[in-house]
């Protein structure tokens, strides 16, 4: 009896954590999609943030705030290096470069003995928790809503609709692309750090291509008409497997089917409402 309750409590707890963390990840990919780019590197940025934060906590015992800050800065620097050369170009270059980045970071984590190699890092101290996760999510939601309702939000939507026309309207396209990627990678890094500090263990295979596609699907399902939409998408996709648990073996299939149907019949996402672009 107690075991069952305890079990339930822990499942519940980690689900609440996951919904918050995935909400932050959904917002991170939203920032890139909002300027008309496609990133498949969000999982890699998340992994870099997770390893940065976890290593600082485990090996150096730094305060959690410092670990959080570093977990935003390190992936941001990485994004700067990846984004610099690719963002001058248009089209799918960023998507391809970020797929490569994901593979490279996975191999580095796998072979980096100091960071536990294939075994990953364990005994990460429990920090932050629900308060830090949802606090971060709330701050980002408010911040991105304010950005949407300003000249920057207008420029971003203009880029997404018609990049050449946006450039002619005076939008500095390379700079907007780069800042979006850097901000987005910092957000994913923070999500990684938060999640590492509530799960006590991280491994090199958690941040691969599959995770990147899952993060992208949050925004595809929810939509990108407003910052709320991708968070709704991630919440549904995080809850869905739990709700479908009774279906046992069919769970993954039904889960996939729901995503496919939603994308087919709701190309603007579940929440197509578009936020106003004036302040």
């Amino acid at each position: 009896m107690w075991d069952a309750l305890d079990d339930f409590y822990w499942t519940y707890q980690s689900l609440i954590h996951a919904i918050g963390v995935n909400g932050i990840l959904a917002l991170s990919v939203y920032v890139v999609l909002a300027v008309g780019q496609l990133s498949l590197g969000q999982a890699a940025f998340m992994g870099v943030g997770a390893y940065t934060g976890a290593l600082l906590s485990v090996k150096f015992g730094v305060p959690f705030g410092v670990a959080m800050l570093a977990s935003a800065v390190v992936p941001a620097l990485l994004a700067l290096v990846v984004g610099g050369p690719t963002l001058r170009l248009t089209g799918v270059y960023l998507a391809i470069a970020t797929i490569g980045l994901g593979e490279i970071t996975r191999i580095v984590f796998l072979n980096w003995d100091y960071a536990g190699g294939a075994l990953g890092l364990s005994s990460i101290p429990e920090r932050g928790g629900v308060v830090a996760i949802y606090g971060t999510l709330a701050v980002l939601l408010v911040g991105l809503t304010l950005v949407a309702r300003s000249r920057v939000g207008r420029a971003m939507e203009a880029m997404r609709e018609d990049e050449a026309a946006a450039g002619v309207m005076g939008v500095n396209l390379p700079r907007y692309r780069l800042v979006a990627l850097v901000v987005s990678s910092a957000m994913a890094g923070v999500a990684g750090c938060l999640s590492a500090h509530v799960s006590s263990f991280i491994g090199p295979n958690e941040y691969g291509f599959e995770a990147a596609v899952t993060i992208l699907s949050y925004a595809l399902l929810g939509g990108i008409g407003s910052p709320l939409a991708p968070v709704l998408g991630s919440t549904i996709l995080t809850l869905l497997p739990e709700v479908l648990r009774p279906l046992a073996d069919f769970r993954l299939m039904v889960n996939g089917l729901i995503i496919v149907l939603a994308v087919l019949f709701m190309p603007r996402g579940i929440l197509p409402w578009r936020i106003a672009r004036t302040g």
């Binding site: 000249r151 207008r154 420029a155 939507e157 203009a158 609709e161 018609d162 050449a164 026309a165 946006a166 309207m169 005076g170 939008v171 578009r274 106003a276 672009r277 004036t278």
Partner: peptide
């Protein structure tokens, strides 16, 4: 024509003001 069709008419014109803000 290459207006930003998802935006409102007013938002389109405000986008043109980008470099002046």
């Amino acid at each position: 024509i290459r207006i930003f069709s998802e935006m409102t008419v007013l938002e389109n014109v405000m986008t043109g003001l980008h470099t002046r803000l």
